[in-house]
Design a binder for these strands. Structure first.
Lengths: 172, 172
DNA sequence: CCTACCGATCGGTAGG
DNA sequence: CCTACCGATCGGTAGG
């Protein structure tokens, strides 16, 4: 709180005119990011497109959010575990629901033969975790634009996810 | 330190018969993991095999380490940033060297046409970060064996990395 | 390895 | 929004 106060040219105690407790800051950031991703998931679920396109849209959102708001994403990704009860439980549950909805899309893609027949949980966590470096690497100014970075990460991840085999044939 | 002491049935002050400072624990774990990965890199560099095989071996090591020693990997992956100077600088430099050696292998694969022509830094960080969920998800007992998990993650990641286009031809 | 501490720091409050 | 604090906790030491 002392560090935070210094950044806004106040005394630490003065922060408490704006917030009630330190925990409140953590809660607000987590809740806001949760809302952001949940709303996107609502939209994606109602879209009439293939699983491959839905995953692509969700990945794109995660990547763009990490590039645009790295601080909030750091809190949402790494610091949420410091939430106090009962918020920790509530947040974990909301996270679980989001992941389950994402899993459903992945399962749909596997059943339809668009995705490789891998374990959906492994796919989900690998995809979501694969971009966790973005919000940390903001200090070194990027050689590539955010758009290029997004494009390349998606190509790398979707390339591994999509099934290259012919629909009804054997191997090779 | 109080929590740690409780886990080994001691008083916090008694820990200081075994270590000099709290920081020492962090340093030792970071140094040990650094040595482990550096030694593996030494071996891999001297192997006579293609880049695709080298990346596969390194990924396999990272995955197996995360499964076998999740606590150390958590420290090495997430907690190293709390090292004090001058250890923080030293460690960052050793990390940078390891990453550079990994980058060289990736660049070699791109030049040889085995890997997609993406930015090598993006590939490196995406691959290394993609498995960061493994050491956190140890509580839920796994539906899949460690071997199966390793195999599937590697298939997912290498599938996106490898170039599927014919060597000299156009697209499709 | 324990008891008995200590100085520093932390989140937070009282009162203006 | 500030000054002046407070109780709790932290890493660590003295001395046995």
């Amino acid at each position: 709180m002392r560090d935070l106060a210094e950044r806004v040219n106040l005394r630490a105690s003065s922060l408490y005119s704006h917030i009630r407790r330190k925990e409140e800051i953590l809660q607000k950031i987590c809740a806001e990011q949760d809302r952001r991703f949940t709303e996107a998931m609502d939209e994606v679920e109602h879209m009439e497109c293939k699983p491959v396109e839905k995953v692509r849209i969700l990945l794109s959102l995660h990547i763009r959010t990490a590039l645009e708001d790295p601080t909030s994403v750091t809190v949402f990704s790494d610091e949420w575990k410091h939430l106090e009860e009962p918020y920790l439980q509530k947040f974990s549950e909301r996270r679980r629901i989001y992941e389950q909805r994402f899993l459903n899309i992945i399962e749909e893609g596997i059943k339809g033969g668009a995705f490789k027949p891998l374990d959906a949980n492994i796919i989900l966590y690998t995809l979501l975790t694969a971009i966790r470096w973005l919000h940390h690497k903001q200090q070194t100014q990027p050689a590539l634009s955010g758009e290029k970075q997004e494009q390349q990460i998606i190509e790398l991840l979707m390339g591994g996810l999509e099934n290259n085999l012919p629909k009804e044939g054997g191997e090779r």
